[in-house]
Amino acid sequence: METHESIKRMFQLYVGKHFTRMGRAIFGKWLRAQQDQVEKEEMLQQCWEASEGEISADTWNEWNRLQEQLGISFKRNGRLGVRWMRYAAVIALFLVTVGGTYWTAVQYTLHQPTVMSEMFVPYGETRELVLPDNSRVWVNAGSTLVYPSDFSQMDSRTVYLTGEASFHVSKNKKKPFIVKTAGLDVQALGTVFTVKSYAGEDFTEATLEEGSVKVSLKEGDNRSYILEPSDQLVYSHADGGVRMNRVDIALYKMARKGYLIFENVSFEQMILTLEKKYGVTFQYNATRYGNDLYNVKFAPDETIENVMEILHQLIGIQYIINEKNVIVK
């Protein structure tokens, strides 16, 4: 079951996203690897059934180019069956349509087999990871980080994030460290920073603690920004707007130690964070709490019961906790 979920998250991370040529080459290598072929086939079947694209002669031409350039060949008993030709078409669709003419213009080749590693952190947990270059990453609840198991054959140290993670990057001027999300690319220049990009949320954030980073937008006019310590860039997925904030970096350092700190946040934002932190689901009337902003801090050892009792004392919330469900009256 865990293998199936891991394969599913890999597809969700890459399919339909505007990643770099190298990123797509990495995905192609992972896709054609022998391990977990049954699970990959199941996901291709799901992609096929969900696809709204049209299969045409151009699709097949792109598929042939893709096979030639990356060596992707899904064969069963030495033959490529009708079902797999169907899957091949959907691979071409979701890789080619979002990448334009990428497959005909690709210039990057991975000369050594590349193994992609994944860290998925479920709700209610946080984890620390040391990458192959000795960079340290604190991955927050409900997040997925995908990264190559070896950076030595690559021109950059590129990782892919959905969710939230803090990075303490080892310096290497010859190989830039880049965090890819659906809306932003964040390139570190030997630094400590946090990126927050949860699927389904309206904003992606990049916050710098030490050093400097270059944040590049993927949509519109491809704007880029250089951040200084205490700068926070907030990107709106709805309208492509960018807002710059000055933040208290001490709060981010405390967050890595397990503290939950809310400053001038909406009730909805607070609830989303609590759901990730404790692995629970809230039921509440959004209109009742829609206009207020909240300021509160919770210690690392606080339970959800402690948190709700504190909120009851501070703002008068009435609630019921039923296993993994929290009902706010």
Rank of each mutant, 00 (worst) to 15 (best):
A199Q: 07
L208D: 11
V195M: 12
T204K: 00
L217A: 06
S236F: 13
Q187K: 07
E228V: 05
K218Q: 08
V186M: 00
Y198D: 01
T181S: 00
R223W: 05
E201W: 05
S212M: 14
D202E: 14
T194A: 10
A206W: 04
R223S: 12
T204A: 12
K196I: 12
Y198I: 00
N222M: 05
S230I: 03
T181Y: 04
Y225M: 11
E219C: 15
A188V: 01
S230T: 15
A188P: 00
T204Y: 10
T191W: 02
P176L: 09
V234Y: 03
L227T: 14
T204C: 09
V186W: 02
Y225I: 11
L217W: 00
Q187C: 12
Y225P: 09
V195D: 13
K196W: 02
V192W: 11
T191R: 03
P229H: 14
V234H: 02
L189Q: 04
L184A: 02
G220L: 09
L189C: 05
E209W: 01
F203T: 07
D185I: 03
V192G: 06
L189D: 10
G183T: 09
F203I: 08
N172S: 14
G220P: 06
D231P: 12
E205K: 08
A199D: 01
I178A: 05
P229A: 13
V195S: 12
E205M: 08
G183A: 10
S212V: 03
E205I: 09
K180W: 14
A182R: 04
A206F: 07
K180P: 04
A188M: 01
V234L: 04
R223Q: 14
V186P: 06
K175L: 08
L208V: 06
L217M: 06
S212Q: 13
G211F: 10
D202Q: 01
V213A: 06
E228Q: 13
E201L: 06
N172A: 15
S236V: 06
D185C: 02
A188T: 01
V213D: 07
D231Y: 15
E210V: 10
L227D: 14
P176N: 05
D221K: 13
A199P: 03
V195F: 07
S216M: 02
G190P: 11
V215Q: 05
Q187R: 07
L208H: 10
A206Y: 07
A182F: 00
Y225S: 09
T181F: 01
A182E: 03
L189Y: 09
G190C: 14
T204L: 01
E210S: 13
L189V: 05
G200N: 02
I226H: 08
K173P: 15
D202M: 11
D221R: 12
S216K: 00
Q187F: 02
V186N: 01
V215G: 07
G200Q: 12
A182M: 00
S212G: 06
L208W: 11
